[in-house]
Amino acid sequence: MSIIRSYAALEQGQPLQAFDYDAGELKAHEVEVKVEYCGVCHSDLSMIDNEWGGAKYPLIAGHEVIGTITALGSEARGLKVGQRVGIGWTADSCQHCDCCIGGKQVLCQNGTTATIVGHAGGFAESVRAGWQWVIPVPDDLNPEVAGPLLCGGITVFDPLLRHNIQGVHKVGVIGIGGLGHIAIKLAKAWGCEVTAFSSSPDKTQEILDMGAHQVVNSRDKDQLKALRGQFDLIINTINVSLDWMPYFAALAPEGKFHTVGVVLEPLAVPAGVLIGGAKVVTGSPTGSPLALRQLLRFAARTQVEPTVEVFPMSQINDAIQHLRDGKARYRVVLKADFE
């Protein structure tokens, strides 16, 4: 048997409890990673609370893992025992459909295996994933803060790659929380002119310190109107409905409005808005293994680090409550302390 210690939700919405489980035999294509750090994401809370439906308990969440390899399956390639690596939202994909063969594994036609959906995640001493989704961590990237890059980071980095954004472009970011603050830091390091849209004027100086060139009050119609026709890309990170028309109007010709926030209501987009400026409304999940590797290398080279608060994993319920209370600035990270 291969017994792994973890913290699991035994019932919907309940505090996590210590939970040991038998992981079974390591599959040929899998890698086992000893967890050093694991970020806490709102998606973890959604699974624990079964907000999306279909959660199965006991549920072991955690999908922003940084750790070291302890075992390699016989088919794992390009990795070695003792190497520091990361595992994000996706733990596996089929590797043989057109999307996987084409390097778009995150869009796997047979369905990706999410690290925390029907799979044991990183709120544990060890976690497993298919070797292609086990991402090498550069030596000069701080492991304590790197975990959130593997979910929140790649979520806002992929739009830069997808839309061929360059340093000459203007990028707007709606919502400066766990996702938005990383988007600002990455877009600034990418060389872009960055505008933050925030409903919290008291955070203005803090947002400027993150790298934004200007902060716009998202509740000020006059400020929004003054930005008409400026942005090559606007990334929406919030999951609540707004009046989207001022943001569509703020796009430059051929500009892209890209949402990574899961807004439950349909986005009302008049056809004339799209046709008149050849504008585009898009969305995306996380990113491919290649994009994840590129992100970690870029973050290491430019010293982009998410702003985190670190809790011992043994205080996981305190950390989760801190996030539930909206007090996180801006990502919560757990440090494994099983030994």
Rank of each mutant, 00 (worst) to 15 (best):
R5L: 10
L10C: 05
L10M: 05
E11M: 07
G13H: 12
L16C: 09
Q17E: 15
A18H: 11
F19Q: 10
F19E: 02
D20V: 08
D22M: 08
C38G: 00
L45R: 04
M47W: 11
M47N: 07
I48T: 08
A61K: 04
E64S: 01
V65S: 12
L72G: 05
G73L: 06
E75H: 15
E75W: 02
A76I: 14
A76W: 14
G82E: 09
R84M: 06
R84W: 03
I87G: 11
G88F: 03
W89K: 04
A91R: 01
C94M: 10
I101T: 15
G102M: 03
G103D: 07
L107H: 15
L107F: 15
C108F: 10
Q109I: 12
A114G: 12
G118W: 15
G118K: 08
G118R: 12
G121F: 04
G122A: 06
A124Q: 01
E125I: 14
V127L: 11
R128D: 07
W133E: 10
P138D: 06
E144R: 04
A146V: 05
G152T: 00
T155I: 08
F157M: 01
F157L: 08
D158W: 10
L160T: 01
L161S: 09
Q166F: 11
V168I: 11
G172I: 07
I174N: 02
I174A: 02
G177H: 07
G178C: 13
H181T: 01
I182F: 01
I184S: 01
L186N: 09
A187I: 07
K188L: 11
W190A: 11
G191E: 06
V194S: 03
S199N: 13
S199F: 08
S199Y: 04
L208M: 12
D209V: 06
G211F: 03
A212L: 13
H213M: 14
H213N: 15
S218W: 00
I234T: 11
L242T: 05
P246C: 05
Y247C: 02
F248V: 00
G255V: 13
K256P: 06
V269C: 09
V273T: 14
I275Q: 10
V281D: 00
V281K: 05
V281A: 05
S284Q: 12
P285Y: 09
P285V: 14
R297M: 06
R301Q: 09
R301V: 04
T302V: 09
T302G: 05
T307Q: 07
V308K: 00
P312T: 12
M313I: 11
S314A: 13
D318W: 11
L323E: 04
K327W: 03
K327N: 13
R329F: 05
L334E: 00
A336S: 04
F338D: 01
